[in-house]
Design a protein around this nucleic acid. Structure first.
Lengths: 233, 233
DNA sequence: GCACACACGTGAATC
DNA sequence: TGATTCACGTGTGTG
């Protein structure tokens, strides 16, 4: 260790001398201590192997990312990750762009609540939507549910088609950490779902039909974009 | 070095003894060689600092990815990357899903060729589209161009709106590496562009209008989803 | 004590 | 050659 420090700029551990001298000391004394040394060596082995496995896991994921994004075959890790970031942003923007302007009720009752874009900075938005049969009573229920939450509604839209409607709310949040914003998302989702549940209950009471679960399919037209994303429920 | 190998399972370089002994030898001899040692130390320093910077770059990108994808705050690197992979796939699927079924010609002449999904396994698809004015002659040109390529067309669609049309081809490929599939994409793109160019040439010959570049804007309606993704050209 | 994850410095390869 | 990237083993902290 001291030897090592004779060269300035070298810290103790840079040559692994500590470990080395430990082993030496252990080896000097007979038998019993040797057990300790063997054990230590085994531990060291396990350690390095575990670390190798960890690296393989990470690099494996990086490799599949390379396969997922064309043109990144020969990039180094950092450049690859930068490209991944761009891709995620691009795709996210494309989705919102292609989704925007096509606010059309689908034939599936659903509540979607998701955090929308740019939590790069401290501000963020929550986009909440509820799609179901159109009932004027529902509107006030929704309004109440949303306004009961300590949130600021930035934008609200409604679209109807036939007997169906979809309501969209964009809600502003700021200065919330990861967990805070997630709990906001959850509370919004809960609020809208309770509105939907209440509606179902009243429907059921008026015995128009019985529900099998909470989701209901109404054949209006084949909806293509309302599937996937189970986590949005 | 020999000392090091006395412990089996330890390779030469595991303690950095090579480097160490190099420095020792250098120090034994006076003055001139000391310069060499100093230089070596400096180089080592630069090296470790560069490596530190590299790590910071990578970790920085990982951090922004964390910020970009909610719920990954406390994940370890591997889990984060796995989540990133899921996100990219999800978003990619959402885009194609939300795009599909809305095959409508836009007001911009364009050729899009992109690799579509799942090159996880060895098979993949290429989705190629060409959007331009509708001319019946074009159809056979396109057909010829596509069939001239050593590819299997899995699906083909055409949609028209007013004077505009868009053709979509889904082409199957398999057992191609990154570069191979990329060159296929390029050749498809080239083929479709040549069709478009030929069309332009004949149009120009018939002197309906002069082109400024190859792109042409026709006001039909404001197209929203044909923007971005310059790399698709 | 053990398992896991991370940062670090180093050796080697590539350009 | 120097600069840069990667894999590796190790030290260290946390649960």
């Amino acid at each position: 260790m001291d030897v090592c420090n004779n060269f300035d700029g070298f810290s103790d551990n840079c040559f692994g001398f500590q470990e080395f001298s430990k082993e030496v000391k252990a080896l000097v004394k007979p038998e019993r201590k040797l057990y300790g040394a063997e054990k230590a060596l085994l531990a060291l082995r396990n350690h390095s192997e575990a670390e190798r496995r960890r690296r393989e896991r990470i690099n494996g994921h990086l490799a599949t990312l390379r396969g997922l994004i064309p043109g990144t075959a020969k990039m180094d890790k950092a450049a690859l990750l930068a490209e991944v970031i761009n891709r995620v942003k691009e795709l996210r923007d494309r989705v919102t762009e292609v989704t925007r302007g096509t606010l059309v009720p689908t034939d599936i009752d659903e509540v979607k609540v998701e955090q929308e874009g740019k939590n790069d900075e401290n501000s963020f938005f929550i986009r909440a939507s509820l799609c179901c049969d159109f009932k004027t009573e529902l509107l006030s229920d929704i309004r109440e549910a949303i306004e009961a939450l300590p949130l600021k509604t930035v934008r609200a839209e409604i679209a109807t088609l036939g007997t169906r409607m979809v309501n969209v709310f964009v809600i502003a949040g700021c200065n919330a950490d990861e967990e805070g914003s997630q709990s906001l998302v959850d509370s919004v989702r809960k609020a809208l779902r309770s509105v939907l549940d209440k509606f179902y209950a009243s429907e059921e009471f008026s015995s128009r039909n019985t529900m099998s679960g909470k989701r209901r399919r109404v054949s209006l037209f084949s909806s293509s974009n309302s599937s996937s994303y189970g986590d949005l429920w």
